[in-house]
Simulated assay, not measured.
Amino acid sequence: MPTFSPRYAFAAPITTDKITPKIIARAVNSLTTFSGGIYGSTLIGGLCAIVYKDILNIHTIMIIDGRKIAERVERQARERVERLREVGVKPKLVVLSTTSAEGAKIYEGVRRRACDRVGIICERIDLTGASEEEVIGEVEALNQDESVHGILLEAPWSPDIDPRRVFMAMDPLKDVEGLSPCNLGALIAGREDIAPCTPRAVIEIAQSIGFEFEGADVVVVNHSMVVGKPLSIMLLNRNATVHVCHVYTKNIVDSTKKSDMLIVAAGVPGLIGREHVKEGAVVIDVGMNRVNGRVVGDARFDELLDYVKAITPVPGGVGPVTTAYLMLNTVICAERVSSMRGII
């Protein structure tokens, strides 16, 4: 079982149990047993010992505060932006949107506010209804635009577009999601200079609570090119034993129940409950679903609270850290592009 030695003070420990009537009843019953001819001080001592023993057995978990982790990552990005601006470089991110999905519109505001905090210029190009060739043409034009340092093909993508072709056309130096063949190849080789934002966020969250990857059993419920595939590579780079589950996995419980860490990004609200999780495991919930006007994850958060070692909430867990790493990746791209041009 991996050890947990918090590296940062971003994982807030809470207790999920209290001194219940049942505990008090046990203490009273014990006092009754002791009542024949025992002095009052002994009775009080017995009560204290019993209650203290039960308090020691209270289950303690960590609800991981993604916002605190994001603040630190954004601060690092902001400091690097200031150094770039000193030499006349103003980092600029261009977002290509190919769908009018509600989730994309919500995230647009979140992303723009983060760019404002860090000092990144952000431009969004609406390509809803554009053909694949038109999207690729836009990417090729941005590749040549010297004022642009980062290009993001916003998910979800239009069903009429093969994102693999778009990423193949993208300049690897400006690929802020790290999904071009060049950047993915570097990831496999163990170089994570530009890695996909959500996998980077998951790794950072796990490291923030001191999770030891080496030798740990980690299950990823997702096999997309944005999350599951690159994340599994990054976990392997850290010597974890990795199992990947997806829509074609016949019985995910066979894998998830044995894992020290369960990372779920299925996009299915309430998919993961106690029956899927080993007691004392870590659960990182990447899912973000809107149900009855509320944003919820893929894990049944309340059900797992008194069962797991640590868990990320939704919202406030993986999402803010993912956005922060988009900022940092954009800055890294600006540094790389500027270095190639001999500016820094």
Rank of each mutant, 00 (worst) to 15 (best):
Q144K: 14
P159D: 05
M168Q: 15
M340R: 15
G270R: 00
I263H: 00
K68D: 08
Q144C: 07
Y325A: 00
V176Q: 04
M62A: 13
L179C: 11
D175R: 06
V73Y: 00
T99R: 05
I161N: 00
E108G: 07
Y248H: 15
A324G: 02
R294Y: 10
R117P: 01
S224C: 07
R83Y: 09
L96A: 05
L153R: 01
T249C: 00
I55G: 06
P91E: 10
A195C: 11
I23P: 03
L127E: 06
I284E: 00
R80W: 08
T198H: 01
I120H: 01
A101K: 12
I14N: 07
P181R: 10
A281W: 08
V81C: 02
G185T: 09
A155L: 13
A70C: 05
E102L: 14
D217E: 15
T16L: 10
K68L: 14
G287V: 02
G129D: 13
S180P: 07
G210S: 10
S255M: 12
V291Q: 09
V219T: 15
H223N: 15
V295P: 06
D145W: 09
M234E: 05
F213G: 02
I194G: 06
I209P: 05
T322D: 00
I252W: 04
I120D: 01
R336G: 03
R111K: 15
S35F: 03
K250V: 13
G287K: 01
K18R: 12
G150N: 04
T32A: 13
S30T: 14
E177P: 03
K68C: 04
V81N: 01
A310Y: 10
A141N: 11
L152R: 03
T32S: 12
E140N: 06
L43C: 11
A11T: 09
I344A: 11
I209N: 07
L262S: 03
V314Q: 03
R294G: 06
I332Y: 10
V73W: 00
P172G: 10
T198I: 01
S255D: 13
R164G: 09
V242H: 05
V296H: 02
F213P: 02
V282P: 01
D175E: 10
A70F: 00
E192A: 09
N251W: 01
S158R: 07
P320E: 02
D260H: 15
D145K: 07
I55F: 05
E86G: 11
P230Q: 04
S232D: 03
D302K: 09
I203P: 02
R290W: 01
P230N: 04
I63S: 08
G317A: 04
T15E: 11
V73P: 00
D302R: 11
A169H: 06
N292S: 14
S5M: 11
G45I: 04
D17I: 08
G297Y: 03
F213Q: 04
V218P: 01
K105W: 06
A130S: 15
P269C: 12
L96W: 09
S255P: 01
K257M: 14
G267S: 09
R72Q: 13
D17K: 13
I343T: 12
T323M: 07
I38K: 15
V291C: 11
P91Q: 08
P163I: 04
E140M: 09
T60C: 10
T33V: 14
G215H: 08
D217L: 08
G280E: 04
R75M: 12
D54M: 07
V227P: 02
V219S: 06
I61H: 08
P163D: 02
A101F: 03
A334G: 10
K22I: 11
